[in-house]
Each structure stands twice: as structure tokens, then as C-alpha cells.
Design a protein around this nucleic acid. Sequence first.
RNA 1: GCCAGCGUAGCUCAGGGGUAGAGCAGCGGUUUCGUAAACCGCUGGUCGUCGGUUCGAAUCCGACCGCUGGCUCCA
Length: 573
Amino acid sequence: MNREERLERMRHSAAHIMAEAVQSLFPEAKFGIGPAIENGFYYDFELPRPLTQEDLPIIESKMKEIIDADLPFIREEVSKEKARLLFATQPYKLELINELPDAIVAIYKQGSFTDLCRGPHIASTGEVKAFKLTHIAGAYWRGDERQPMLQRIYGVAFDSQAELEDYLLRQAEAAKRDHRKLGKELDLFSIHEEIGPGLICWHPKGALIRQIIEDFWKAEHIKQGYDIVYTPHIAKLDLWKTSGHWEFYRDYLYPPMEVEGQQYIIKPMNCLGHIMIYKSQLRSYRDLPLRYAELGTVYRYERTGVLHGLARVRGFTQDDAHIFCRPDQTEAEVMGVVELAKFMISTFGFGDYELLLSTRPEKYAGTIEMWEGATESLKRVLEKLKLPYKLDPGEGVFYGPKIDIKLRDALGHAWQGPTIQVDFNLPQRFNVCYIGADGLEHNVTMIHRTVLGSMERFLACLIEHYGGAFPVWLSPVQAVIIPIADRHIDYTHQVGNELEEEGIRTQVDDRSERMNLKIREAQLNKIPYMIIVGDNEVASSNVSLRLRSGEDIGSQTISQVKAKIRRDIEAKC
RNA sequence: GCCAGCGUAGCUCAGGGGUAGAGCAGCGGUUUCGUAAACCGCUGGUCGUCGGUUCGAAUCCGACCGCUGGCUCCA
């Protein structure tokens, strides 16, 4: 048994132990399910009263008693009949029993607690070495919002106290990288109750980072044969009826507004504008592929409970593009997009990401042949590029299969970023065609794609990835010049001007404050270079260089410093 | 949207039925200093909003708004 399997078994057993503890405190508890998860476990309960944070230590100490008693886990196999009797007061367990395919089901007992469970488990409760209950949350029975909401207790468990403490410490460190916290501390963006939830105000420093990314994005897209376009933020409702969005996507749309007797809505997607541009002329098969790219701001109504800083908002800018191509070009185009996405996110330092290939859902547009053909193309691209990916069966959008790339935030939550979606629906609904070599009209294949996801979510991940210490090329302030005493101020401005002329974003800190305070603030603002000047520097026409790592490089000529900063900017690291 | 928790000065937070507190920030001074916080003084809040209970509410109750952790959903 490898480490992961052993840990999973132990964590699952910890869930049973927690269930026993809860049962002893609430004899009338009804039990849902209690699996192992990454780093720990949870169990869902229906209880006579809401749990509070204060209940957790009580449950923990009860769990410790059970662990200290070192009770064996005993597996038994019983008939469904017997299981129904055993769990007669447990409606959720009965529901599970009824759905199990076999006539015989497994149960596990430890101490006074018996659970319907496939197993496997550890030999006895004493094998749980280190655990902690972390939080309580509501969770729908079977993850279905029409079902009752149960109370879920989450815990973490490890092989040793040291590993547990290490994990908790890492979580605490990760919390410091939270983009919502850093966004405020580094003065990057804000969200206002007065404006509305999920709507972002970008402050000068955050806007500057975004602008650098957008400039880079545009330049790379132009290199890759994309054409930059702009399309309106509102459009007639009829357009969205034709596209099917009004029918399939209505819950996410802001209600229509009436203008001159016509209904308009704010766009939730950019595709329709791009289609209109495509359709403004007759297109020959020789013109394809056409790639229209737009940093397009869209608005979607998201339920209040799902909003999260920059990562899940109601107004966001997609780094969108739509590729119109012939079916025989699809694979090459998807290949180009995957490579571009890989290049973009690796430029921003993301090495660790997940690729998912989603296939045909139950409700779908187009024919099975179209789906299979496109899904195979996507698969071949991933295989040719030797990219490891997971299949996400049935999770495609109704209009076509897709490849998603997920980026992780500081706390390990995976957010969908780049996405590449083949679309069989819109070309038909809008009759998006080209004239083939045969002189006849053919539907184009349309590919919707982003290579960052959205500026908001990407920035959220980026802030957390770097913990706010952005690489030099993205740092809003790249160098701060700090005089030791007021008599050095003239010289700091002189140095500052030289750096500015070199295109380095420089700030001269000429406030009447002590150098130590200025260094501290520069550190807290995660400014990459601190350039300190005092009597020695003025006398020698040099500067003293300190890095945000804390490293004191010491005396350098101004041209040495300029060259170093330029090199670091160009290396994008 | 659902479950739970939370909302006190610009920020971080204490207080908890008798009418508001700290540190930092800000402002005014003093200090001119060698690699992560100099010193003194001052200003600053209808305690998220609206209702209710009470002689009296920031404190208790209700509704709403917002935030946090999950669930569901997603770029």
C-alpha cells in the first residue's frame, strides 16, 4: 500500500470516528456520507440544532477518547434486508442501501458506531495519529440544491503531529497570499457596496499591472495572426434569442432595458459581435481561418453566494477570441491555441496547472458524428503535445466539446482559466458560412477561446501565485530611491531621472522620514529594488542597492543598476 | 440562491443594555538618521441600514444590505 492509499484509508476512518463522536453527543443525528478528501475528511449530518465553532473542540476531545481506546474496525457483510433493519432510523443510509446494486452490502463497526461503508479502513482507531476539525459548512444532501441541507464538518488528518502542524502553518502562510487581502494592502483594486457586489474598481497600481498584461497579450496575439476587434457592450435582445442564450443562459443575463421600444441586454459573451463582423462580408474558403480577438468586458448575473474577490465576479473582461475556420483546419487551430495558452501562462510563472477535456453532455446541439470528430481532434492535439489531461465526461457545453485549463489559488482551490471550446451551434443558428472550392456554402467551425480566462480571475491567481511580489516587468513600482538624510534628496532625484529615462518605473521617497521606515514600507509594498543613497554614494556618484529578498548588494554604479534592472525586466522574471 | 458565522474610526481589532476604545494611518510639530516601524501633540465613529423591545440599544429581537467559510453553479 502506498502512502496516498494509506492516508486516504486513515482519513476515511477518521470520518467514521467523528461520526461516532457526533452520535454520542447527538443520539438523534442522521448520517449522510463521510469520505476522505485531499488532506482530510468530512462527514455530513442532520442535527437537532446548528453547530457552532465551539462544538468542534468538544467533538475533537470525544474523538480523542475513541482513538485512545484503540477500537478495532470490524467489517461485516449483510443482506440488504438486514441492513435496512440496522439503519431503520437513518433515512439517508436507507436511500443509499436501496440504490446499491448487490444483494449483500458491507458495514463497518467501531465501538458504538456502525456505518454503511464499502471500506477499506485501518485496523483500529488508534492508527489515527494527528487530526484537527477545521470548519463547519452547509452541504446539500447528494450535492443537489433541491435536497435538504445537512451540516458538514471538515477535518484534516496526517501521519504525525509534525505533519499536521506543518500543514496548518502552510495554510496560514497561504492565507497571507489571499488576493483579497493583498489587493487591499498593495492598493490594487477595490469592491464597493455602493457600486454593487462582484464589480471591480481597479486602482492605479492594479490597473497598471493589468495594462502590462493586456499589452503583452495583444502583441502576442498579433504575432499569432489574430486581428484585434471591438464590439458593443449592449445589443438587442433578439440577437440573444437567435443565439439561444436567452433560452439556455437566461439565469445569468441581466434583465433587458427598453430603448426606443426595443429591448436591449448587456452582453454576457463576446461571440455575437464577432459573428456579425464575420458576416459583414461573403467569406471564401481561402480567407479562413479568421481569428478575431477582443479584451471584451461581459456582465453575468452570478448568485451572491458564489462571488469571491476578483476570482468570481459579475463584470469581467475575457481575453476572448473566436476563430472561424474550415472543419479541416480545426485541429491545427486548436493546436495553435493550446500552445499559445501554454506559452502565456508559463510566461506568468504558472508551471502547475490541470488540463481537462470535457465531452458531450446530455443536452447537446449538432450531431453525434460532429461531436465525436471534434472530441477526437481535441484529444489528438493534447496527445501530440504530450500534455497530461483528465477526461471530464459529459461536462462539455451544450454547443461543443472543450479543453479547460485550471489554475490554483494560494489555498489550493482550482479556478478555470483558459478554455478552448468548439461550437457547432452558433454557426448554424446564424448561418455562419464560407464559400467552398465547390462554390457552395458551408458552415464554419467556430472556436471560442481564452488563453488567460478573464483579466479579473487571472489577476487573482497571479497575485496569489507571487504573493504580491510580482516579477519586475509586472511590478507597478520597480525601484524606490531612498535618501538617508534630506541633504541627499537632490541626488536621489538625479538618480530617479536617470532610471526613468531608462524606462524603469521609479519612485523617489523624499518624505521627511527615517530611512528605516522607507525601507520597511518598500518591503511591505514588495518593490523589487531599493536604491539607497547617503554621503558615500553622493561622494562616489554611486548608489547602494537592496533587493526585496532582503539581500544587500551594496555599492554599484548607476549604469550597473540600470543594466541589472533592464536585464531582469527583459527576462520577465 | 441555500446553511452557518460576521459587520465598531481609512486599516487591523478590543468592548457588549446606562449613551464609544487601542495600535497603525492622517494632520501639526520636533528629529536628519546607513538597510524592516524616531519622538510629542491633535483630529477622526449617527458602532452596515431600517424597524421593534426597553426609562434607556453599538449591545437584545426581526427584516434588508454586504462580507467570510462551504454547498450548488462558473471565466
